[in-house]
Design a protein around this nucleic acid. Structure first.
Length: 642
DNA sequence: GTAGGGTTAG
């Protein structure tokens, strides 16, 4: 039983909240307490020893025949069964030197890929923060040899690939002081791993200042980075600027990247125009160009257009592959058209293509979304019978569906299965568990899952915490919710506006204006951007305590801040005006939203009816009811209100 | 560089 048996009893609140990704593993953290490290279960005992040593501890090394570190093993240190720390350290240093020597030997033969894999393994074990000591080792032991600059360059490159950016930059600065030039491939790696930040431009400036020739990937990374940072206009300008230069050969990936950025921003029409641009530059769209567009069209529900492009792709001589089919199949799943999903699966089989795990996952998702988890589970059995093992994505879909149906017994069965086949739970899978337990009101269990994922180095994100927070709020445990939020903020974790919105809403529901306002001020101090949800919630809290002038003041504030009020904003205010017996103000709000072309929904209409009926203005109520019919709003809700 | 899973407000 994955989660039942391993949970420690949860006796205290608040629990220990996840800290930012620690420099050492949980095994090392546990060992720090006991000064013992289990070499058989620890992934990287040497690294852990070093980390402990830095903290002034003198850890002992458990021989590999021990399987567990537990309280009883503490005494085992006395029987001489442990390796001495000094011995371990010397062996470690020797091993490092031997590996670097191997790298230099490989460099002399120009075997770059192999250096890359040796260093990747080594740096993976060494962890971040290891650059200074490795550089020292390189500098002291491998001077004045031709192969040196290659090894240094690959070292910086691998640090960048492993996203140990500070280490990569450290190696580059050392190389600079030793008059060695990094290769464009290393700069590319660094830029790629910094693509979510503005730092890419500093690296690009450096490349240009040093006169290093760009690779075909360099511009692609920069355009991708601008798209990822939602700077589409800049991406387009940069693209035009680059392609205006004679020395730059057009490269299909760069076109596709820009197209992908445009698609993600919802600019499908502009993205489509890139297809003709590709031809204009003398290139041909490849399968990525087509599938990127098809994917976007499917996501938008434009299946006809997607199918047309699918045919164009085939006409263009590009063989349809499983990915292209899966994109289309998923498009039909999104529309809930399972019969079409089956048709396409048959079609792909007819074309000689084998549905893969992604195809089956889409199929399972479709069944689950229709509420037929049994059918989803049946597909799972069929897939397994065909010799395909499900991955964590497919299991997540099923877990989520089972939680929604409250089939907790089946949830635990699947968790056992996941454990039995040795699959690792990832961030989404854990988040589904946390959400599921929260929805069932089992918040303690949710918190235990949170602790468990942290101990496995899977760090919760905003979504994960959101579930816990909203669950605490729903239970009215505002003190605990606030404590949880404060801890997230205090531990320097990324806290976004959604988490604040959830807790503000919690305060709003219990009518605690002070709590809500305190958080509002905190948001302003932190410089987070308020969303319409924040404002709606604040309006709600003032409505709740019957301060309607203040509530309406927020509505004006929203507009001043350039945010568009929604149907929720107006409905909240209207409901409050009805409650206060002020039907005229309610109608004023109603007319205002109509003028702004904000579509009223069922709840809005029910509020209007409630107000008018309360005042006995039945004719007006009937008139609005007719409008409601015309605009196609369902009447069911209204009847229940009357 | 293209495909499949989780989330907030009335």
């Amino acid at each position: 039983m994955l989660f039942r048996s391993k949970f420690r009893p949860f006796g205290q609140f608040p629990p220990q909240l996840p800290a930012p990704k620690p420099a050492i593993s949980s095994a090392a953290a546990a060992a720090a307490d006991e000064l013992l490290i289990d070499s058989s279960t620890s992934k990287n005992p040497v690294r852990e020893i070093l980390t402990l040593a830095k903290r002034g501890n003198r850890p002992l090394f458990l021989p590999s025949n021990r399987t567990r570190v537990d309280r009883q093993s503490r005494g085992a240190g006395k029987d001489g069964n442990f390796m001495d720390w000094e011995v371990a350290r010397t062996r470690f240093e020797d091993a490092r030197l031997a590996r670097l020597e191997t790298c230099h030997a490989l460099a002399r033969e120009g075997r770059l890929k192999e250096i890359n894999s040796v260093l990747k393994q080594m740096l993976h074990e060494e962890g971040s923060g290891s650059a200074p000591s490795l550089c020292e080792l390189l500098q002291n032991n491998f001077r004045d040899c031709d192969s040196c600059s290659i090894v240094w360059d690959v070292l910086a490159n691998v640090y960048a690939q492993l996203e140990m950016i500070h280490d990569a930059l450290y190696v580059l600065s050392k190389m600079d002081s030793l008059n060695m030039q990094a290769s464009i491939s290393t700069y590319d790696s660094l830029m790629y791993n910094l693509r979510h930040t503005d730092m890419v431009w500093d690296i690009y400036k450096e490349i240009r200042a040093r006169g290093v020739t760009h690779s075909e990937y360099t511009y692609n990374i920069l355009i991708d980075s601008l798209c990822k940072q939602q700077r589409l206009q800049d991406a387009i300008s940069f693209f035009q600027d680059v392609h205006g230069r004679k020395e730059v050969k057009p490269f299909i990936i760069t076109f596709n990247t820009l197209m992908s950025g445009l698609c993600n921003a919802g600019l499908v029409e502009v993205a489509k125009s890139i297809l003709s641009l590709i031809l204009k530059y003398g290139l041909r769209p490849d399968r990525y160009s087509y599938t990127t567009l098809i994917h976007r069209l499917c996501a938008a529900g434009s299946m006809e257009e997607a199918l047309k492009l699918f045919e164009d792709m085939e006409k263009d001589g590009i063989l349809l592959d499983v990915v292209a089919y899966n994109i289309l199949i998923n498009g039909y799943r999104l529309l809930g058209l399972m019969s079409e999903v089956w048709k396409l699966i048959k079609m792909m089989i007819f074309q000689g293509l084998k549905p893969d795990l992604v195809t089956y996952t889409i199929l399972i998702t479709g069944h689950c979304e229709k509420g037929d988890v049994e059918e989803g589970l049946r597909v799972r059995r069929e897939v397994i019978a065909r010799g395909i093992q499900l991955n964590i994505v497919a299991y997540s879909v099923l877990l989520n569906a089972l939680f929604k149906k409250g089939q907790i017994g089946e949830v635990h069965q699947l968790l056992d299965e996941i454990e039995a086949i040795g699959l690792h739970m990832d961030l989404v899978a854990y988040s589904i568990l946390i959400h599921g337990y929260c929805k069932l009101g089992e918040i303690e269990r949710a918190l235990q899952v949170c602790q468990m994922m942290c101990s496995k180095q899977v760090m919760p994100n905003s979504f994960t915490h959101g579930a816990t927070l909203s669950s605490l709020c729903k239970k009215g445990m505002l003190v605990e919710a606030r404590w949880y939020l404060d801890n997230l903020v205090g531990s320097g974790l990324m806290v976004d506006i959604i988490l604040y919105n959830i807790v503000i809403d919690g305060y709003a529901k219990i009518g605690d204006v002070d709590g809500a306002l305190e958080l509002y001020e905190q948001i302003l101090k932190l410089g987070l951007s308020l969303t319409i949800v924040t404002y709606n919630t604040l309006i709600f809290v003032f409505c709740k305590i019957e301060k309607l002038t203040v509530a309406e003041h927020f509505l004006r504030q929203i507009e001043l801040n350039g945010i568009n009020p929604t149907v929720v904003t107006y409905t909240t205010l209207m409901d409050a005006f009805v409650g206060a017996g002020n039907t005229d103000s309610m109608l004023r709000m109603f007319n205002e939203m109509i003028e702004k072309a904000i579509m009223p929904n069922v709840i809005t209409y029910s509020v209007v009816m409630k107000g008018l009926c309360k005042q006995g203005r039945l004719q007006k109520a009937i008139d609005i009811l007719k409008d409601m019919h015309i605009s196609g709003v369902q009447i069911i809700y209204f009847e229940t209100i009357i």
